[in-house]
Design a binder for these strands. Sequence first.
DNA 1: GCAGAAATGGAGCGGACACTCCAATATGTA
DNA 2: TACATATTGGAGTGTCCGCTCCATTTCTGC
Lengths: 203, 203
Amino acid sequence: MARYRVGIETRERILAATRRLLGEVGMEGVTLKAITDQASVGAGSFYNLFDSKEAAVFEVVREALESVDPDPAGEGNDTLADLVDAFVLFVTGSTPVARIYLQLAVGRGLTDPVIAARVLRSHRRRVERFADAWRREEPGLDAPEAEARAQTMLAALTGLGLTALLDPGFDMRAHAHRLLPPQPATSVSAGAGRRRRSAHASQ
Amino acid sequence: MARYRVGIETRERILAATRRLLGEVGMEGVTLKAITDQASVGAGSFYNLFDSKEAAVFEVVREALESVDPDPAGEGNDTLADLVDAFVLFVTGSTPVARIYLQLAVGRGLTDPVIAARVLRSHRRRVERFADAWRREEPGLDAPEAEARAQTMLAALTGLGLTALLDPGFDMRAHAHRLLPPQPATSVSAGAGRRRRSAHASQ
DNA sequence: GCAGAAATGGAGCGGACACTCCAATATGTA
DNA sequence: TACATATTGGAGTGTCCGCTCCATTTCTGC
C-alpha cells in the first residue's frame, strides 16, 4: 500500500492530523471523521492506507514513544544535568508529544496490561540511563543506591512534568534543577559561560 | 429521587458497580450496560436515580477526589512522614480509587480545562500541606524554600505512585521513604518500637 | 388494606461511530 | 499513448451506546 508519491503524502497528512488531534482531544476523543476532515481525505482513502483507525493512532504513539526513549546508540556520556534538561525540554518543548505519551502511559497503561508492559520497559531503560549518570557523577556509589536515586529522580521529573502539563505557568525547569546534586563550589563562578556537555542530549 | 429504602440501596449498588468498573476498565470504557449489568438493574431504574451516565461517573470521581484531598479539618500537626505514608497508603492500599484519580487527573485533565483546574486546585492544597510540615520539621526554612521542597516531594510521590500502579512489584514505600530528610541519629535505635504520630493521617 | 407515589425492567429510538464498497480518476511504466 | 494499478471521495452498512417510555410491581404512611 502507498506505492505512489501521492499516496505517501496522503499518509503523512493523515499521520500529522492524527498526531495533532491526539494532542488536542486526547486518546479516546479522536474519531475517524475528525482525522479525515483534518487531513482533507475521504474515508476510502484512509482505509486504502491504514488497516484501521487504531493502526494510525498506534503509529503516531509509536513515534511519540520512540522520541522519549533513551537513545540506544548514545555513548553513555551524558551528565545528570543533560538528562534532566532533556526531560524538561521534552515536556515543555514538544508539549503535544508529551501529552500523548502521558495519556498513553497513564490513560491506557492503567487498564491495558500490554501498554503497561511497554511503558514499564521504556521506563526501566531510562532508569538505567539515569543510574549510570549518577555513578559517573559520584563514582563511589554502589549499584543499588544509584538505581534508587535514579528511580526517585525520574519519578520526581514525571510528577513535575505532569504539573507542568496541567499548569502552563509552572516553572518546571527551576524545580527540576533542584533535583541535581549540589555543584562543587569551584564551578559556581563560571556564570553565563557555563555550558552543558552536549547541545541536545539524546533522550 | 430515591425516597424509599430500596431506591437508596439501588443507588449504592449502582455507584459501587461504577466504581468497580472505573478501576477495571477505565474512564472511557464504562458503558451503561456494563454498569446496569454489574448492578443487576434495568436501564429504567438507573435513570430513575441518575440524570445521566456521566452523573454517576462524576459522583464516583468526586468521592475519589475527596479521599485524596488533605483533610480540611486537619489540625496541621502531621509530620512529613505521616503525609508520605498516607500518600503511599492511598496508592498501594486503595488501588482502584488511586487509578480513578490518576486517570482523571491525567487522562482527562490533559485535555479538559475544567478538570485540569480542579485537579490543580487540590494539588496546590496538598503542596501547602506538605510545605507546612516541612517548616514544622525544619523551623529555619523560609516559605519559598519550603514550598519548593513540598512541590518536589509531591511530584516524586506522584511519579512513584504511577510506577507502582503500572508495576505491582514496585516497592513504593521504600522509595518514598528516601524522600524524607535524614533522621537525627538519636531515634535510629528505636527499631520496631518506632511509631508514626497518628495512626491514620488525614490526607 | 388502601391509595398514591416510587421503583423496576426492558423494548426500542435516534444518533454516532468504525468501516465497506465502488465508480470515477490520477499515476507511473513501457 | 495505452495499460495496469493505485488513489480518491462519499454514500451506505452494521453495530453499539446513551437514553426514553411505559406497563407492571413494590413500597410506605395513614
